[in-house]
Design a protein around this nucleic acid. Structure first.
Lengths: 221, 221
DNA sequence: CCCACAAGTCATCGTTCGTTGACTTGGAGG
DNA sequence: CCTCCAAGTCAACGAACGATGACTTGTGGG
């Protein structure tokens, strides 16, 4: 990032008169505000005040508040997931734990954008966006590595665990999970993902555990 | 039905001129609206229109919108939990699954009030209420039945799973979990809760005395 | 040096919000 | 039947909202 092509004099510290930089700063402030307060709870005047510009710039640069929100919450999931396609499920779960729960998302105050989006889940388009990003970004990649008739269901259960952990940590602030470190949580999540990776007990699924088999699960109920 | 002590003539179907009944109807409509749209996304005129009365009744009967919200989301957790104190953890997890995920909460459109409250989690007092109800109502009862140094953490992990399931089902609407039945989910949750109920495996990694260690996760930048 | 154009500001519009006070109406008691 | 009080309605308020158009100001190119 060759910082700025300063043409003449860089007198002002951050922003001189740069449309792109102002737009990016507005987008960043919008991410934070929308994530923390939800869509309806955030005013354009707040976002503009965070950046230090006039609120009228927002409808100008983004079209409308709703378009700003759509652009703010749209984040491509980096998905180190897609990289290691052949990784076993517990390794994937570990990667997801690191990324979804413990990854610091710079524009979102350290919480995962999907968790932040939950606060604005009153609108149906937010629901659609959430479902799309979650299912296509994470769950599909996960369920493809499971087998059995309810692979999708077990993948979503793992997703529910991770989403719930994010919610408890950054929304609710439950004591134990909020203070837990990654090293503390890793073996527990590994145990849970192993329990989910095992093929379903019933359903007449033949040949127990095609891939690696049940890892150390005492799956007996 | 027809349990109303009709004093003279029961001409109007539902409500004649009954302050208590109108108040209760407003509270119920408020629960539904706040749960579905969040606090900021709900207007008093909407709630009043659902009941069919004038919006001015709400500040009159409840004091303010905020007080109405506080009264609407305050629900005592029935907690068949506290009843069977000696039930083993998997049985408890099953009861929680039935109650939290599949219980139909009449005033909240079938989703758990804690999940509904997530949509208004922008305010710190909602966060406090959530944490209080969740921790004191569910997690404490759960962690008391686990042992080991991280009993609270494992209890919160189970809570995270259930909360995440509720979120995925009623907020996100992920396909597999939304269509799943209780009978489908029960064995899976049983497996997970069994994995959590087991005593923590002795992690030989941190042999040193300093608990936890100041290890900070590698902050990918 | 200066000037045109874009970046940013200002005043303001129409709407909707929560809330308030004055008014109207229904229904039970005398 | 009349009266009175509470339940409910109506109109309106000030504030905040998103959005718009006209204006001001800074800056790079000539």
């Amino acid at each position: 990032m060759a910082a700025q092509p300063v043409t003449k004099t860089a007198r002002h510290p951050g922003r001189r008169r740069d449309r792109a930089a102002t737009r990016a700063a507005l987008l960043d402030a919008a991410r934070r505000r929308f994530g923390r307060q939800g869509y309806e709870g955030t005013g354009l005047r707040e976002i503009a005040a965070d950046v230090g510009v006039d609120p009228a710039l927002i409808p100008r640069y983004f079209g409308s508040k709703r378009a700003l929100y759509a652009e703010a919450v749209h984040v491509e999931i980096p998905s180190g997931l897609a990289a290691d396609v052949n990784a076993p499920v517990p390794h994937l779960a570990d990667a997801l734990l690191r990324e979804v729960v413990f990854g610091d998302w710079p524009g979102f105050d350290g919480e995962h954008p999907l968790v932040a989006m939950l606060r604005s889940a009153g609108h149906s388009d937010v629901r659609d966006l959430l479902r799309h990003q979650l299912c296509d970004g994470y769950l599909n990649a996960l369920s493809g590595r499971l087998d059995g008739p309810d692979a999708a269901l077990r993948a979503e259960l793992l997703g529910a665990l991770l989403i719930g952990m994010g919610v408890l940590r950054s929304v609710v602030g439950s004591p134990a999970l909020s203070d837990a470190t990654y090293e503390q949580l890793r073996p527990l999540v590994a145990r849970l993902s192993a329990a989910l990776a095992a093929a379903p007990a019933v359903k007449g699924s033949s040949g127990g555990g095609s891939r690696g088999g049940p890892r150390r699960g005492e799956a007996s109920r």
